[in-house]
Design a protein around this nucleic acid. Structure first.
Lengths: 202, 202
DNA sequence: GTCTATAATTTGATAGAC
DNA sequence: GTCTATCAAATTATAGAC
């Protein structure tokens, strides 16, 4: 969790690279365009990120850390499972509606089969961590309530399955929202997901 | 619905282009690679598809027609809404598990913001037609059963929302399945979706 | 329909000066 | 850290012969 992990200029480059990747995928990023976006030359961008695959990995890792930081502790006792999933939905809605680009790992995940290995691994780790956060968010609730024994292995497994489903649905709705140019698909998903969260507790 | 819309060689090219696009997106396709795949030269591929955007559009349109043909009539009275959604799930499972590549429009949809306009429009049309098929599949059931009045406008709207959600979820689970290298995410989605279909009828 | 040849551009990446 | 200069390779696309 070291702050200032990248220099100010390196962060500018990562910002520009993240935006382009979220618009058009890994191949949409070029050193020339990044250079122009941050006011230096392409060879100077290579100084900060020698290989494009390393740049890609850095973008994904920073993105993952940012999103998890926004979501906060998955087992914050102040929240219910429903509230936590709402927070997750809000994060995805903010990305598409206000930043006007889909989730980075939605775009990169779709081209997984053609991604440089280090980038592909970073995307895989993003999904693992997001699913872990969500599964914990679903479970922490039932632990806090009545039955003090914590969550059983089968509870954990059910939460994992539901968490994967929730993350997947959010990614998919972003794609449909993009193609139909209508963010309603994404906001409409929230009640469907919350229904599943509630059904799980019953 | 003209048969033989493309020559045999053009179809070979479309096959190769579809595979590459489903692996790595629109930019992953190159005339050189396509030429090598079908045993001719790049300039000869240009004879069949002068512009790359046209090639992309053709791939998407043929893909859309193929999938809709496989799904068949959305209001076949022999099936229930549940059976029809199962058929839809089966189509997506077949793509990922047996063809070992995700849905073409999952990949292209994710890079919508950077696609040539004609390709983007074709992808949008794919989603519209898939959602229309699914909404009809959901409604045809309640029409066939007891209340002979057909579906009310609010029924149609609810079916549209659910249809968009189902299509979106299938796309999203493909992405997660790819990144986790585990097709279970996709097969696990089916019971969640069928639950929503059943809940709608109650 | 397919070929050779070629054009014009873009790409990721490196060497070396300042 | 940033620059100029340069490279080798790949890209879409066209002209014209067969």
């Amino acid at each position: 969790m070291a702050e200032q992990q990248y220099s100010a200029k390196a962060n500018e480059i990562l910002n520009a690279a993240e935006l382009r990747m979220r618009q058009g995928g890994f191949d949409a990023v070029s050193y020339r365009d990044l250079a122009a976006a941050v006011g230096i030359k392409a060879s100077s961008v290579h100084y900060h990120f020698p290989q494009k695959a390393d740049l890609g990995r850095a973008v994904v890792e920073r993105y993952t850390a940012k999103l998890l930081a926004f979501l906060g502790q998955a087992d914050d006792p102040a929240d219910s499972a429903e509230t936590r999933v709402q927070k997750l939905c809000a994060a995805y809605q903010h990305a598409l509606i206000h930043e006007e680009v889909p989730c980075l790992c939605c775009v990169l995940g779709a081209e997984s089969l053609d991604l440089p290995p280090v980038v592909c691994q970073a995307v895989g780790k993003f999904f693992e961590q997001m699913i872990h956060w969500t599964a914990t968010a679903l479970l922490a609730n039932s632990e806090a309530s009545g039955n003090g024994a914590g969550s059983s292995p089968s509870d954990r497994q059910a939460a994992e399955v539901l968490a994967r489903h929730i993350i997947s649905t959010l990614q998919g709705t972003m794609i449909t929202a993009l193609t139909l140019q209508d963010t309603k698909v994404l906001t409409d998903a929230e009640p469907f997901l919350l229904r599943l969260v509630r059904a799980k507790d019953v």
